[in-house]
Each structure stands twice: as C-alpha cells, then as structure tokens.
Amino acid sequence: MLSKRIIPCLDIRNGQTVKGINFVNIREVGDPVELGKRYSEQGADELVFLDITATHEGRKTFVELVKRIAFNLNIPFTVGGGISELKDADALLAAGADKISINSSAIKNPKLIDELALHFGSQFVVVAIDAKEENNRWEATMHGGRIPTGKELFSWAKEAENRGAGEILFTSMNHDGTKNGFANEALAKMSDLLSIPLIASGGAGTMEHFSDLFKFGKADAGLAASIFHFGEIAIPDLKHYLRTEGISIR
C-alpha cells in the first residue's frame, strides 16, 4: 500500500538551513547536507530544499549544493527557489535533483509549467503555492507571502495540474509558523479537486496534527521544518505514532 510521506523542509539561505516563522525572523540551524542525511537515516520519506531568498533577490539556486545533496542522500529530494526558465531546471536535474519546485515564476509565467513538464516530465515538476485566507477567500501570494497575486488558490492549483504539474505543495500562510495544525479544510477541498499528489505545509506542531492531516486534510504528504530542526518531534516517534493511528507509513 502506498504510504503517506513525511517531508522535512530545509529552507536554505547562503548555503545554510534556516527556518522563518511566518517567513520572517530567520535563524540558522545548520548544514543542509548534514541535516538531510540525518533526516534520511531517521526515516524521512523525502526532503525539500527551498532557497527561500532566491526569488526575492533574483539569485539562482546553487547547483553545487544540490550535487552534494544528491551524492549524499539515498532518498528523493526536491529543490526550489530561483527557477524561472528551462536552463535553471536542466542544471538542477543534471546535478541530481529528483524534482524542482516553482512558485512565483509559475504565477508570473504559467506556461513555464507546460514547458517544464514537456521537457522533463510531470514527475519532475512541483508547483508550490503559498496562499492566504482572507474573508473566506484563499488567494495565492508571491515572494514569501508578501505580494498578493489575485489568483484564487483552488483554480490556480487546478490550472497548474492541467498545465502538467506532477504535484502541488500548498503552504497556508495563515497556519505557517503557528504550530496549531494544518489547514485541513482547505487541504481536503484541494485534494478532492486534484488528481495529482498534494503535499501539505504550514502549521505542524504536534504528532496529532499529522494524524489529522492524513485523516481529515486528505493530503498525500506532510511537510514541516522547525519542529524537526529543533527536535520537537523526532521522525521515528512520529512514524510510530501514525502507524498506531492506522495510517499507512513506511
């Protein structure tokens, strides 16, 4: 049986792992390769490395770091940040990335999704969406939640799928950093709408939150950062707990 995935997310700035609380107040937590290896050994199913300042500063993701990660990890990983054209993706693929994630660049140029899917296959293309709920309307945002886009979350997610995205990574800006649980209602709605896998991000604080995510949020994978980085939840404990909750876990 296909298992639900637990995905630590390593936000990268200047080659170091950081975690922003609501995408501000960044503190450093260590070397991405070492952290990635540790998570892999602990049973993480996949890893995401996001170059969080890449889009904002127009910086490209460092291919050299991706090579080191690819060499050292024996589980799949996604790389995001600063990917705005085919050649960016090509360099990351050649370096050993299993998937790339695009966010702002897809909003600015939705055809990029079609091009990437055509050249590299849908399985390589994750469309990440940071969205905010205001007055009962979910809207996609850009640049770490700072800029509204006018795009309604659910129609944008469906459009991304139709254009060839292989997976959607949905971060709720309302929940991110709060540790009060995932945006299960919106996630369930999105999961029902999509026929591609859905990764949920934003709000993980306890092991119960992951159980709720898979039971009620209908997500295929749960992503979190600080609770793992700061040792608040150990991945082996989390997986053991989810198994006792009857959730299919590796």
Partner: peptide, 10 residues
C-alpha cells in the same frame, strides 16, 4: 485517495 502519478513509497 488515488492520485496520478503513483508517487511515493510502496
């Protein structure tokens, strides 16, 4: 809960 692609650990 089926999604396509079949992506993940089985």
């Amino acid at each position: 809960s089926m999604k396509i692609p079949h992506m993940g650990w089985n």
